[in-house]
């Protein structure tokens, strides 16, 4: 039996959206076909989208086991969060 086409991960940014979101994957022999398959699968009901496809084998993801060292440090830098600061009422646009 013939082997699978490579797997590609699909990222979509909807019209007016801020960032590309991972929506799933498709199999395709190459990038051009991958974009078309991704469009047909994930954006059928959408207009004006931006679509990225990336070979799954090219994606490097953080390892959840390393979550502690990658992400915990941010947790105690609470001064990065706007709610940390008390702005008196009446001051707008801040």
């Amino acid at each position: 039996m013939s082997k699978d086409w490579p797997l590609w991960e699909v990222f979509v940014r909807s019209k007016g959206g801020m960032a590309h979101r991972h929506v799933g994957s498709v199999h395709a022999p190459d990038g051009e076909i991958a974009v078309k398959h991704a469009r047909d699968t994930y954006t059928r009901r959408m207009e004006g989208v931006s679509l990225w496809v990336v070979r799954s084998s090219d994606i490097h993801a953080s390892d959840p086991a390393d979550d502690a060292q990658n992400f915990d440090p941010a947790q105690d830098k609470i001064y990065r969060h706007p709610t940390f600061y008390d702005i008196p009422e009446g001051i707008t646009h801040i």
Binding site: W5, V26, H27, A28, K36, H37, D40, T41, R44
Partner: peptide, 11 residues
């Protein structure tokens, strides 16, 4: 031949 192509043709 593949599910992906089904979608293309139906489209």
């Amino acid at each position: 031949p593949t599910v992906e192509v089904e979608l293309s043709i139906a489209n």
